[in-house]
């Protein structure tokens, strides 16, 4: 199992795993429309070229079994102490390969990439129902900061 940073040449691999991840999310988050997901990953080509973004692929015998997508984001003007932050957009490991420490390793690679860019903090969003992800991030030193709340009128 090895982890490496994706380049534009890996477009198809990144698109496939990202699409798989979005379908996985759509099953659990009723708000996402699976029909529309097919179109989204095509913007990935541009993102792979973007120096403020990094995609890391976890590969086993040449097959992609997980990925992480990290981004250097600009903060709004009043955060003068923290002009930039690291944002972990996505983290996904295929079901059969979970509980093997791959998620942690992917996060570590993101950390290394962030450190090079000298941020002071980084952020990750996690679904309220995703207890596994929340525990993983807590183990990696993340704490809850903000909660998104929703009210649906029927």
């Amino acid at each position: 199992m090895r982890i490496r940073k994706a380049t534009v040449k890996d477009f198809k691999k990144v698109k496939d795993i990202k699409t798989e991840f979005m379908f996985w999310e759509a099953k659990r988050d009723k708000g996402i429309d699976p029909e529309k997901i097919k179109k989204v990953p095509f913007v990935l080509r541009g993102k792979l070229k973007n120096k403020d973004m990094a995609f890391f692929l976890a590969e086993e015998k040449g097959e992609v079994i997980g990925f992480a997508w990290a981004e250097k984001q600009k903060n709004k003007f009043f955060w003068t102490k923290y002009p930039f932050k690291g944002y972990l957009h996505d983290l996904y490991v295929k079901k059969e390969y979970r509980k093997k420490g791959i998620g942690k390793k992917l996060i570590n690679e993101c950390f290394k990439w962030f450190k090079k860019k000298k941020f002071k903090y980084w952020e990750v969003g996690v679904h309220a129902w995703n207890i596994g992800a929340k525990k993983l991030y807590q183990k990696k030193g993340f704490e809850e900061h903000i909660v998104w709340m929703r009210q649906i009128k029927k």
């Binding site: 950390f111 962030f114 990750v124 996690v126 309220a128 993340f142 900061h145 909660v147 998104w148 929703r150």
Partner: peptide, 26 residues
């Protein structure tokens, strides 16, 4: 997360947790 009074107000109106933002200082 640490704003308990606000959190309780929203809960009382039927708001539920949807997503959480977690942070880690480097």
């Amino acid at each position: 997360t640490n704003n308990q009074p606000a959190f309780k107000l929203y809960q009382s109106l039927g708001f539920e947790e949807n997503r959480k933002k977690m942070v880690r200082r480097i």
